[in-house]
């Protein structure tokens, strides 16, 4: 019988949430690459869009996505969009983050979410996971990465960053 309640709750959630879909970036302490604690809200781009890309050094599709964005980053820099790559590496692999991003010459912001508090607060179960935020409101989420997704994301940002400027 318990399972029926379980299913019922999921169904109710599904319907009510299709009506109410508004979420903000939660206030969570994460770390800069230097180990300083900062609030997640301080990473927001106040005047435009913020893209949070949840990744890890061991996640090949995540690196593929960020490398793909890196290759087009000249284009991105001309828009009013801030990219924050949130490393979910735990202490097994977090030491690789700084050497890796320097080795790759990535120019975007990288923050550390070592025990995945930020990831958990956003209900993210798998990576790569991409979130686009306008102000502090989430307007787009995507799970996974396939080649070409970076271009679709760029188109989405271009369309929506204009709205911010307007």
């Amino acid at each position: 019988m318990d399972l029926n309640y379980f299913k019922l709750t999921i169904i109710i959630l599904f319907f009510t949430h299709s009506i109410y879909s508004q979420t903000n970036i939660p206030s969570i302490y994460i770390k800069t690459l230097n180990g300083k604690s900062i609030n997640s809200k301080s990473t927001l781009n106040q005047n435009g869009l913020t893209v949070y890309s949840f990744w890890a050094t061991w996640c090949v599709p995540c690196i593929n996505e960020l490398d793909a964005i890196h290759n087009e980053f000249d284009k991105w820099e001309k828009t009013n969009v801030k990219l924050v790559a949130v490393s979910t590496d735990d202490s097994r692999t977090k030491r690789r983050v700084r050497p890796l991003i320097n080795g790759k010459n990535w120019k975007f912001d990288v923050v550390l979410d070592e025990n995945q508090k930020f990831k958990r607060a956003l209900n993210i179960s798998g990576i790569p996971h991409t979130i686009v935020v306008r102000g502090s409101e989430i307007i787009y989420r995507r799970i996974g990465y396939k080649p070409g997704d970076e271009s679709n994301l760029y188109d989405f940002l271009l369309k929506n960053s204009k709205k911010v400027i307007d």
Binding site: R95, R96, R98, P99, I101, N102, G103, N105
Partner: peptide
Amino acid sequence: FNTGFIKNGFGADIT
């Protein structure tokens, strides 16, 4: 004990 050295285009880390 962990230490690392980084500059543009290069990163080294030893633990």
